[in-house]
Design a protein around this nucleic acid. Sequence first.
RNA 1: UGGGGAUUCGCCAAGCGGUAAGGCUACGGACUCUGACUCCGUCAUCCGGGGGUUCGAAUCCCUCAUCCCCAGCCA
Length: 543
Amino acid sequence: MELKPANNFIEEIINEELSVGKVEKIRTRFPPEPNGFLHIGHAKSLCINFGTAQKYGGKCNLFFDDTNPSKEKDEYVQAIKEDIRWLGFEWDTINYASDFFQDIYELAVGLIKAGKAFVCDLTADEIRENRGTLTRPGVESPYKNRSVEENLQLFENMKNGMYADGEKVLRAKIDMASPNINMRDPVIYRVLHATHHRTGDKWCIYPMYDFAHPICDSLQGVTHSLCTLEFEDHRPLYNWVVENTGVSHKPRQIEFARLNVTNYVMSKRYLKKLVEEKFVDGWDDPRMPTLTGLRNRGVPAEALKRFCEEIGVAKANSEIQVEYFDHFVRDYYNQNAPRAMVCFNPIKVIIDNYEGSETVLTDINPNKPELGQREMTFSKTVFIDGEDFSLCPPPKYFRMKKDGLVRLKGAYVVRCDDYVLNEDGSVKEVHCTYLPETRSGSDNSGIKVKGTIHWVDGQNFVPCQVNKYGHLLNDAEYAGQDFSERMNLNSKTVIDAVCERYVADAADGECFQLLRKGYYKKMSGGDKPVLSEIVSLKDSFKA
RNA sequence: UGGGGAUUCGCCAAGCGGUAAGGCUACGGACUCUGACUCCGUCAUCCGGGGGUUCGAAUCCCUCAUCCCCAGCCA
C-alpha cells in the first residue's frame, strides 16, 4: 500500500502502523458529551478526527459520550448534530455510549469474575483520603479482598437499585501505589439514580468515562482514538481496560493539544455562565465562540475548516491569534462574496450638474467575472457613507472632502464643491460636480483619483437595519436568514456590501468589524472589539 | 519536592545528524474604479540555558530552567 505523506505526528504514527501492517482500515470517532454546545475548539477536534479518517479512506463515527445522565440532554445531541452537518462532515454511524451499557455491564462482571474489580463501600470522601497525594501513595480499600461471589452479588444489587447514590462503587484493582493517580484502583461504576435522556430509568448504575470510553471505542472498531492532551495520564488506564476486559479489538489513544484563541473564552463553565446570567442572548449569540454563534456572525464553515487545517496538530500548548482566524474568513469572502454597496449614517450628495438618470454597472465579484455585473441607477442625488466624507480631513484622507476629487464606484469622478450644515453642526447635504468624461468603463480623461467610495442612488435605495445578529436587513422578512441567503436577496438592491463585513459586537447593532483589513484597523483602533465584553467578564471571573 | 507532557521568529509551524520551509502578524514599496485584494521586499548566524558525543547537532547523550496536565462516585 502506498503511504500518503504525513502532515503531523498523528499521521506519522498511522503511516508507521500502516507500513508494518498493524492496521488496515482507519476508523476514528468524534466523541462529544451532550452537555453543551460545540465551540471552535471542537471544530479542531472535528477536523482532526474526520479529516484523518478521510485522508486514509477510513470512516469516522459520531459518538455521544453520554455516561453521566445528570448533565446530558437530548437538546444538546440535536444541536451537536446540526453543527457537525453545518461544517459539512459526514459521520459513518452515530453511536451512543448508552447503546453499549449492557455490554459494558457484562464486561464489568467479567472483570469481577477475573478478580480484577471489587465493590467498595467507602464514601467519596474516604476514597479521596485513601487515594493518597501526588507525592504519597494511596492505601488499599478494606473492601478490596471481598470474594468474587460477594462482589458479584453486591454489583448485581447495585444494578438492581438496592443502594442509594454514592453508597457503593465498583473499582478496578490496579495499584494504589502507582505514581499515576488514575491507576490507584479507579472507580469504574457508580450508583446514580437519574433519568437518562435515552435509556430512561432502565439503569441506576453508570460506567465512568475511563471504563466506558475504551470499551466503546473497541466495540465500534475504532482504530485511533484521538483526544486532547489532558487525557494523556489516562492512557495507561485506557490500555488497562482494553487489555483486562478481554475485548478483541484494540484501539489506540493519541493525544493532541487543544485549541486556544486569543480573546476567546472556551471553557464550558464560562460560556454557560454567560448564557445563564444573560450576558449574551444565548448559545447562538454572535459574540459566542460556539459554532452556532460563529455561524450567526457570518463565519463560513469553509473558512473555519481551512483555519483548522492550517493551525496544525501538535502536542505543545499554544494560543492562536484571532487575526489568523480572521484571515481565513476574510479570504473566503474575498474569493466568494458578491460585492455591493451600503451606506451607514448616510450623507446626501447632490450632483448639481447632473440631470436625468442612467444605469451603471459594477462587478458582482471581481474574482469571479462569471458572476456578471450588477445594474445600478445613478441620478442627481446619491447617498454616501457617513465615514466617507470629512469636514476636516486628516493628512492622507482620500475620500470625499471639500475641493477634492473622488470616484463614486462604478460611476463618475466627482468634485466636492460645498456642503450645508444643519443647526447642530451635522452635515445636511454635500454639493458636487461630476466629470462626464470619467464614466466608468469609458474613462479616457486620464484623471487619477486616490479614493473610490460606495454610494447609493437617492431614488432607488432600500432602507435597511441590523438585526440582533448584526445581519443587515432590508425588512423584517429577512430576519433569521443566514448570511449567504441574505446576500442573494440583497443583490437585487443597491444597498448591500454586507458581504465585506461581519459583526464584532452586535449588542447595540452599531459596532461593526469590517472584513476589509483597513477598516478593521481603523475601527478597532488597535484594540480588539471582538468579544470584548466576554473578555472583561472572563477577567472578573478570575478575580 | 510523585507521575505525565511540552519548549524552533510577536503567533502558529516544518525540520528526524549535514549546516533554520511555510503561513499569520508587522514594517517598507508598487499597483488598484473596494485605503480591500494582488504584487515585490524586509523580519531566527539561530533552535529554553549549560555541558558533552561528532568532521559536522535544532536534530544524539547529560544536566539545569520554565510552562501545562493529574489527587471527580465529571468528561
